[in-house]
């Protein structure tokens, strides 16, 4: 099960461009590991770009799995997996 979120998040990356943490709704989520990544085709006929998705395990008060994607320079939290 997952919850669709699709909200902008602020992402922290290390020198290797790896995501180390992200801030969502003013709360910090520390990335524990990257579970997977993929790219999804866009509605290019409407001028939209391809999206890069990343699925991470991250920790706030508890541990959860989160899907983030990047559109242009902005990162979004796509969904939260139970």
């Amino acid at each position: 099960m997952s919850r669709l979120i699709d909200e902008p998040v602020k992402v922290h990356q290390n020198n290797d461009s790896m995501i180390t943490a992200f801030i969502w709704r003013k709360r910090l989520y520390r990335v524990l590991d990257v579970v997977g990544w993929w790219r999804e085709p866009s509605e290019w006929w409407n001028g939209k770009s391809m999206r890069l998705f990343i699925r991470v395990n991250a920790q706030n008060s508890g541990t959860g799995t989160y899907e983030l994607y990047k559109l242009g320079v902005q990162w979004f939290l796509s969904r939260v997996l139970d």
């Binding site: 790219r39 999804e40 085709p41 509605e43 290019w44 006929w45 409407n46 391809m50």
Partner: peptide, 30 residues
């Protein structure tokens, strides 16, 4: 190149005589 996936999808739409927005089935950029 990865960016050419749009051209492939466009050609597929032309081949099937449908609008690109109605492309059915599995889509990928890979």
């Amino acid at each position: 190149e990865i960016k050419e996936y749009r051209i492939k999808e466009l050609l597929n739409a032309i081949d099937r005589i449908i609008p690109a927005s109605q492309l059915e089935g599995y889509r990928t950029v890979e």
